[in-house]
């Protein structure tokens, strides 16, 4: 059998093949398996066979200071199967049978890196395309090519910085850089956000939704895009299971949106004097708009008056 000792960060410290049981485990020179950790006793525990069966093992605490823990629970004796983990103080001990299965080797493929390169190029092209269109269609003055070019440079720099940070984290946590993948993810996310904003402008111009519906739709879109992007980044820099990555990404994205909304809301009792209306104007044929006759429109303003009066009376009551 094999005994593996890892430190609290999961780094492998000792790996030993044990021919005969029982063995003693600890920090002293006399221990059969040496564990270099100050939270482990000189002779901390003993690994022995159960019923003389060479495939069933038990770890017994030898009245150590920090004891044994299995899945966070303190135990005096732990029955172990191949692959199980026990904590001795802060150190982690795992036992394996000699025939414990290992995952198949990952294929190193040149085709995959080619695809990643193509995807990152496509992502950048998409981003630069949408942002250039955004600049051209959002401006009504003569467009200077130099200004467009400098905007492209700025975007590429920011993108490189962002992807670089993720790549660095990946290198540190899972030993994989994947710079181009991070680069592709970020550019697609930014481009998607611009595209959805543009589409949203036309949809809201045509449908004139209520202020709250409009806000909900835009926050939801932002949240979903951020979740997808953050999830994709996270999956490449951590060894977390898929589901946990998704939940973490969603929690962080919507959490951030929630915080910004909360800070907006907490300032809402400051008098602004501003009009809150939807000022969008789009070049669409008037036939697609829900047009009302003037009489109906001005007639319906009585509801508005009621709403304002209610707010005024509320403010008046508050003052008194």
């Amino acid at each position: 059998m094999i005994i593996e000792i890892r430190d609290r960060r999961g780094r492998l410290r000792t790996r030993e093949r044990v021919e005969a049981l029982p063995v003693s485990i600890g920090r002293s020179q006399s221990a059969d398996v040496y564990v270099d950790d100050e939270t482990v006793d000189g002779v901390h525990a003993r690994l022995e066979m159960i019923d003389a069966d060479p495939r069933r093992w038990a770890l017994v605490d030898l009245e150590s200071v920090n004891g044994l823990r299995v899945k966070g629970q303190k135990v005096v004796r732990a029955e172990l199967a191949s692959g199980d983990e026990v904590r001795l103080g802060r150190a982690r001990l795992r036992v394996f049978s000699e025939d414990h299965p290992v995952a198949p080797a990952r294929l190193v493929s040149d085709r995959r890196s080619g695809a990643v390169f193509a995807a990152s190029l496509a992502g950048v092209a998409l981003l630069l395309g949408t942002s250039t269109l955004e600049t051209i269609f959002g401006s009504w003055n003569e467009i200077e090519p130099a200004a467009l070019f400098s905007q492209v440079l700025v975007q590429l720099t920011v993108l490189a910085g962002w992807a670089g940070l993720w790549a660095f984290s990946g290198r540190a946590f899972v030993g994989e850089t994947r710079f181009l993948e991070h680069w592709a993810i970020a550019s697609v996310a930014i481009a998607a956000s611009s595209i959805f904003t543009a589409i949203g402008g036309y949809v809201s111009f045509i449908s004139l939704p209520s202020e709250s519906l409009r806000l909900t739709a835009s926050l939801l879109t932002d949240g979903v895009i951020a979740t997808l992007a953050l999830g994709a980044h996270l999956a490449r820099v951590s060894a977390m299971p898929r589901n946990r990555v998704r939940w973490t990404a969603a929690l962080v994205s919507f959490g951030l949106i929630g915080i910004t909304q909360f800070s907006d809301w907490s300032e809402s009792d400051v008098f602004s004097g501003n009009l809150s209306f939807d000022g969008e104007l789009k070049p669409v044929p008037v036939e697609v708009l829900a047009v009302v006759p003037a009489d109906d429109y001005f007639g319906s303003l009585s509801d508005l008056q009621e709403e304002i009066d209610a707010a005024a009376e509320e403010a008046k009551a508050e003052n008194e």
Binding site: L208, G273, S276, V286, P293, L301, I308, N319
Partner: peptide, 18 residues
């Protein structure tokens, strides 16, 4: 932006295509 919640309510708007 002048004014105060004690003196004035915020603007409320009604938007339509007419």
């Amino acid at each position: 932006g002048y004014g105060h919640t004690e003196d004035l309510t915020e603007y409320v708007c009604d938007t339509a295509y007419v």
